[in-house]
Design a protein around this nucleic acid. Structure first.
Lengths: 207, 207
DNA sequence: TAGATTGTTAATCGATTAACAATC
DNA sequence: TAGATTGTTAATCGATTAACAATC
């Protein structure tokens, strides 16, 4: 499925739509209008219809959208209609927590490899995973064809690690390190440093 | 410091600028031009100058920006020139990890309260914190004047918890629950569900 | 059929970029 | 002074919103 010049910002909203549609399906709904979805998301019906129309006409006039159909389509569009194997680098507190977090597996992101450079950690077990030596990282990632990486190393090491995993085939990086990664065109990066989000909110708080 | 109609999207970039400026300061730089900062952030010099100019003229022609001065100004603008006390709700795996995470305290966000509704967890200690019964949440948050909340409860409870802490004075919520919160005008919410970020990246991956 | 709601177009609004005079 | 780089304006680009014909 090739990028047909869909705006990035539209793609970024699709997972949010999917989340809400799944929630409604769990609540027993079978159809939803753009208005109802918009209310749950704090957005506008026009935006939802416009966004979806980039990909096709999934609704029916007078009726709205069939939940199961739309969920299915969105999963296909987002390429999450199958399981993605994931490698994690950096087995500190945060790495630990992420390996234990069930949410990844539940959404089809299976952490199957974890690496650390601390000899004391190598060989230890976290949940279903054995921490491996970072020297074996490239070989392991390449041999399994892993495309998605989670970076949970300290900021000063993040750029180097990112470059190394990109070289062996990783195409998407979820970066927990508090630093900006500069990577080749076409490599996807999302930063999830919570400090950035907190600081962006405190701007609006009078002390 | 009152919102002078600064675009949200500009405010959202300031923490990123601050992060990079701090990094450069640690590396020993004393000044930086918009071009150099832009390179590190993968953005453009024009955007950085434009963004900063909403708040004042912090640079000098021909010279660039004095790092310490600009860092100081950004901290004031973002209201992070003092410590924010934070309450966390939901002491599961994720809550645990966040309490242990040193990054919050290091950036002036001090988690001083944690709540859970599980009687088995109430009274247990995580790091420097005793988990309190959620029944005492409103009273505790109000009496300490806490303005910032971290929500790490399951999705189905997140909306209710958010409403409860907003009623007792919380104005900014970092929401780890995989659901959209609908809250009154003026309440700040940022969502940090990693699944959303992963899904947004897999769109661009051919399988 | 009447009512509801989509998909789409055009209008509006806002953000980014380019360019350059001001000035350190 | 000459070179560099800011702050700002105007031009461009892109995203959101409003409106409505099409149609279930």
């Amino acid at each position: 499925m090739v990028n047909k010049n869909i705006p990035d910002i539209v793609v970024g909203r699709l997972p949010l739509y999917l989340q809400t549609l799944n929630q409604m399906a769990r609540e027993g709904f079978h159809v939803a209008s753009s208005t109802v979805i918009a209310e749950r998301l704090g957005t506008t019906a026009a935006q939802i219809r416009k966004d979806l129309s980039y990909f096709g006409g999934f609704g029916k006039q007078g009726m709205g959208y069939q939940l199961f159909l739309l969920i299915d389509e969105l999963q296909k569009i987002l390429n999450i209609d199958h399981i993605w194997q994931v490698a994690l680098v950096g087995a500190g507190d945060l790495g630990h927590a992420l390996i234990h977090y069930q949410g990844f597996a539940r959404h089809g992101f299976e952490i199957i490899l974890a690496f650390d450079n601390d000899p004391a950690k190598v060989g230890t077990v976290i949940g279903p995973i054995v921490i491996k030596n970072i020297d074996t990282m490239e070989a392991e990632i390449k041999s399994r064809g892993i495309k998605v990486g989670l970076i949970t190393v300290p900021a000063r090491n993040a750029q180097e690690i990112a470059e190394r995993i990109v070289v062996c085939g990783v195409k998407a990086i979820l970066n927990y390190a508090p630093t900006t990664l500069i990577l080749p065109e076409g490599i996807q990066v999302q930063n999830v440093d919570p400090i950035l989000y907190l600081q962006r909110m405190t701007y609006y708080l009078s002390d």
